[in-house]
Structures are given as C-alpha cells and as structure tokens.
Write a protein that binds this DNA or RNA. Structure first.
Length: 552
RNA sequence: GCGCCCGUAGCUCAGCUGGAUAGAGCAUCGGACUUCUAAUCCGGGGGUCGCAGGUUCGAAUCCUGCCGGGCGCACCA
C-alpha cells in the first residue's frame, strides 16, 4: 500500500512539475512517505512540500495545497489535507484497504517476501565459536541474531548461505588437548599438571577419551597423545555445539573448518597472492599485512619470524574463499568484544580486491541474566557463565529466541529469566502466540457452527469498516515494509515489536467484535480478516524461528 | 591516552538515513469473565530524551565538547 501511495504522489508531482518548474532532485530525489504516529493525521503523510519549499524558495503550505488538490482527485484517498508547517496527510479509502487484504491471500505463506535483494549472493557467518567449551548465552544471542538475519535476508530476496567457521587450529586447541590429558591423569589418580580450561565438561570428555583409547594412551609420547586428545575433545565439543544449535533451531548450510585452509595450502597461497600485489611488507623477519593505510590502527602480522602464520592469515584465506565462492555481500555476526577487529578485516577484504563496504559486521552486545531481582553479568574469565543449554532447558526455545531478538543487537541485553518463563500475557512471546491460537480457534468455532468457507473474491470486504478492523488491516499490510527495514539495517529486532503490535490490534478487535454471528456476509468478511491475521503472525514467527501454535 | 557501543518513564528498552502532542513491555493503581480460550481487554499515574553549545522552518534523531557506564586497543584466537 505504501508503494501505491508513493506512486500516486509521484504521479501528482510530475503532473504539476512541468508548470511549476520542479524536479525530483529538488525534492531530494524521492517522495518520503511515512506512517504518522498520530492516527488523526491520516494513514500516510508526506513532507515533500517542505523539502521542495527549501529548494524553490516558496512557502511550503502553498506547494502543499497545490499537491493536495492534485492528489484529492485520485480515487485512492478518502481525504487529503494540509497540516502543520506543510505536511500532506492522506487517508486511504476504506474499500482500498479492505481490498488490499487480497495481497495477503494471494501471497499466502510468502506474504512478506520482497525482492530488494535481487538474488544477490550473501554469506552470513555467525557463532564461529572455538570448539573449546559449550556455548554460553552470549553465543546464543549471536546464534539467533545470525540465524534470523539469514532468514530475513532470504525473505528480502537475497540468495543466502549461512556458515559456521570452526577455529580448530592453534594454541586454543593445544590448550584443550592439554586440559583433557590433565583430567585423564586426575582420573587415574596421577598429578594432573597444567589445566588451561577448568570447566567440568572436560572431565566427561576425559572419561570418554580413556574409554575410547584405553589407559595406555597416557603412556604414549606426548606428541601422539596430545594430538589424539586435541582431536577427540574438539570433536566431542563440536558435537555438543551442533546439537545445542539444532535444538535452538539455528541451522547452517555449511560448517567450515579452519584446518582445511591450512591443509590445502590456501593460507600460504593467500599470503603469496597478497605479497605479489604489494599488500604485504617484511619487518623483523615477520610478514605484515598493510592494514594501517586502510583504516586500521597499524599493520598486522600474518606470518611470524618463526614461520608460523597468525589467526589473521587464516581469516584472510577464509574470506578469500568466500569471495572466490562468488558471495558479494559478506555478513559477519561477531561478539561486541571483537569490535577492534573490524577495521582490520575491512582492510583485509579490501586488499583481497573486494569492496569493503560489502563486508557488513553486525556486532552483538553482551547478555546479562536477571533472576530474582539480581542481574548477573556474563564473564567467561570469572567462570560465571550460563550455558545456552541451561537456558534452553529452563526457558524453552520460543521464549529464548524471542528474548534474544527483541532488542537491538547494539544494546546490551538484560535477559529476565522469570519473565521469559512466565506463561501469561506478561510474556510477549505468548502474547503473540496466543493471538495466533485465537485466530485458529475462531475457525474451529466457525466450522462447528456450520459456517461454510467461501473464496476470498466472493467476500464482501467493504463490510470491514470498523476503526479497529481498518487499524488491524493497515498493520497487517506492513509486514513487507518491516522485512525491508530489517534487511536494510541487518537488524532483526523490529520484527518482534511489529508482531506485538499486530497481536495487540488483533486482541483488541477480537474483544470488541464477534466474528461468528448470524450475519453471514459480515461473518465471512471478518473470517477473512482473521485468516489474514493468522497468516501474518505465522509468517512473522517463521522469520523469527518461533512456533505458531494452533492451540494453547 | 585512542577507538567502538550505550545513556529516553521506577526497571528493561524501542524510536536515531531530522518531522507534527516522545512510545512499548514489566512494575504500580483502578475497572471488565452466563457471549468465538481472561495466556485477554479497558483506563490512570509516571519524562528537563545524560549536560552544554551548534546546524534549520523543525533535533531524542545530525555536528562539536564535556559527564557517566560497558567493551576493546597482541607476532591470542
């Protein structure tokens, strides 16, 4: 509908432009149609006249009057008026609103999908946590933000591929193997030795390690036992991560192992390529990527003097792989503590010959838990961390996803465990799900009452004239705009707020109107509205990866 | 010291590519269940949008400087 209004205004604008000497450039290149906060200002509002006035030195209200008269002649609106300093307020005729419900029925489970992405290939990389321990709630937030972002971009018409980059190489892996061996010795009653990772989960892994390899593995040369312990532990932990994410409905198209980049020689190849192109210099025997001249604080080492490559080197090869695989838009979801890494990565992508603007890093801020009126900040260092598994078991998937998604990822999140667990309307998740269940139930009632369903085009939509009905319809038709805004900003949270509004408008409508009555035409019209609501909520929840129950 | 994020109702946060009287949820107070699920609805109170300047027809929104909180500033990943 918004698009229709925009087109209509453009038409009116050009009809006058010849005589008035206006150009679209004078208007800022576009007609900015917005939905006013205040319903009394109409369905849509436009500040075109004010922008135009500034560039033509005319009074805004004069321009607004002219445009307004032109627009009023269009059958789309029931009223057009000039208000305030020069806003043009438009109210769309109720019949057009009701008829627009057809868009929802026609698109069905695809209503909300748009094509702004034009099939562009986009890679969304997220979680990518080291396989050195179970995922905690911070990872959980990143996981659900990344997963939902992938869903949103797909709904927006992008060709989306999601990936988990497994850092299965390096010092952390050695530490992990060492920790497992230490726990093994402990289990065998020997002095444990160094224990870099102190979490209890290593004890289980150690036990399984001994079972799988026999106690004699501990007498093997350290090099051998460590290599085995490293691999064994990482695999076990990765299995755990996989099943946690699966339960959390977070899926990946691919799990990409860093080790494969080293084994295939891609890391070396990437360094060589960058060296040839002059992006690398040598100092103190080490190789430095010249990121300092491309926005980073300073240049960064990719290969140490001892010949060992750094983490950045592997990440370069990884991003080269993304580019080689023809992904043009690269979305990375990172914990906010990695923000210092952003300029470096942008510079790196640029050195690889890709537009750094096409690397979008979405930083996700910390999560703290609130329970019993007390907030506990997450701290891996102090070992005060709640695992994703714990919160899933306690709160459930739907509420956990919703709570992780309801705030801008730029803001730190306080997760109110007690509120999330509450099965009542206080809890926004159930508030939305309940609205969906109510819709479904109305159809059960209709069927029991013997109401026959008729095709939408035979329904008399003009009967939907109530303020609360039109308000709901207007809201329902906004889903595509919400998807658009989310895709543009790479932020999923507006969807949660939108669905809360849809649910609120529906609950209000439900309370004040009876759907199934003796008035058959009106019953059919309202059933159509209920069905449209059901579809919008279901599609919205689908985007968020949250169930839409038929019954509660 | 430098950089990034945040500072909006008692609490948690939307709104920030500038728009008309600043919103939601929780909490709080008061109402509504012979009627399609009360997991619902209706209503009230609650604000110098951190502070101070600037940009303009118009600033919570943009710019500058402060103040406060978080997080970073490795040849770790």
């Amino acid at each position: 509908m918004k698009k229709t209004v925009e087109r209509t205004i453009k038409k009116a604008f050009f009809a006058l432009a010849k005589n008035e000497g206006w150009t679209l450039q004078m208007a800022g290149g576009q007609v900015g149609v917005t939905v006013p906060k205040d319903e009394s200002h109409g369905d849509f509002s436009c500040n075109l006249a004010m922008i135009l006035a500034a560039n033509t030195k005319t009074k805004p209200r004069v321009i607004a009057e002219k445009l307004s008269r032109q627009l009023a002649g269009n059958g789309l609106f029931s009223s057009v008026s000039v208000a305030g300093p020069g806003f043009i307020n438009m109210t769309v005729h109720p019949d057009h609103w009701a008829a627009a419900l057809d868009q929802i029925f026609t698109a069905g489970e695809d209503f909300g999908r748009i094509s702004v992405g034009h099939g562009e290939k986009v890679m969304v990389e997220f979680v990518s946590a080291n396989p050195t321990g179970p995922l905690h709630i911070g990872h959980g937030r990143g996981a659900v933000v990344g997963d939902t972002l992938a869903r949103i971009l797909s709904w927006a018409g992008y060709d989306v591929h999601s990936e988990y980059y497994i850092n299965d190489v390096g010092l952390q892996m050695d530490n992990l193997g060492q920790s497992t061996l230490a726990r093994c010795r402990e289990l065998l009653g020997q002095p444990a030795g160094e224990l870099p990772y102190k979490g209890d989960y290593i004890i289980d892994i150690a036990r399984q390690f001994l079972e799988a390899n026999g106690e004699r593995i501990m007498e093997a040369p350290l090099e051998e036992s460590l290599a085995k312990a490293r691999k064994f532990s990482a695999d076990k932990i990765l299995d755990g991560i996989r099943s946690d994410l699966e339960e959390f409905r977070v899926g990946f198209d691919e799990w990409f192992s860093e080790a494969t980049l080293h084994d295939s020689g891609e890391v070396e190849k990437t360094i060589n390529q960058l060296q040839r192109k002059g992006h690398i210099r040598e100092e103190d025997g080490a190789l430095w990527l010249k990121t300092g001249s491309a926005g980073d604080e300073k240049d960064r080492v990719v290969r140490r003097a001892n010949g060992v490559t750094t983490y950045l080197a592997a990440d370069l090869a990884y991003h080269k792989s993304k580019i080689d695989r023809k992904y043009s838009m690269l979305v990375n979801v990172w914990g906010a503590d990695h923000h210092g890494y952003v300029p470096r990565m942008k510079a790196a992508v640029s050195a690889l010959g890709h537009d750094p603007e096409k690397l979008i890093v979405r930083l996700v801020q910390l999560v703290s838990l609130k329970r019993g009126g007390q907030t506990v900040a997450m701290s891996t260092r102090e070992g005060v961390f709640t695992t994703l598994r714990e919160i899933l078991d306690e709160v459930g998937v739907d509420a956990t996803r919703y709570f992780f998604l309801m705030r801008s990822s730029d803001s730190q999140l306080e997760f109110d465990v007690e509120l999330a667990k509450r099965h009542s309307s206080d809890n926004p998740v159930y508030y939305i799900q309940y609205a969906h269940a109510r819709c479904c139930n109305i159809f059960v009632t209709a069927k029991e009452t013997g109401v026959k369903r008729i095709p939408f085009d035979q329904v008399d939509k003009s009967l939907l004239t109530g303020g609360d009905e039109l308000r709901l319809i207007r809201k329902l038709l906004m889903l595509p705009d919400v998807v658009d805004a989310c895709a543009r900003s790479c932020q999923p949270h507006p969807v949660t707020g939108y669905l809360t509004e849809v649910a609120a408008f529906f609950h209000y409508f439900y309370k004040h109107n009876r759907v199934v009555t003796d008035d058959e035409p009106l019953t059919h019209a309202r059933l159509a509205l209920v069905e449209a609501t059901m579809m919008v909520i279901r599609n919205g929840l689908e985007i968020l990866g949250i169930d839409a129950p038929r019954k509660m």
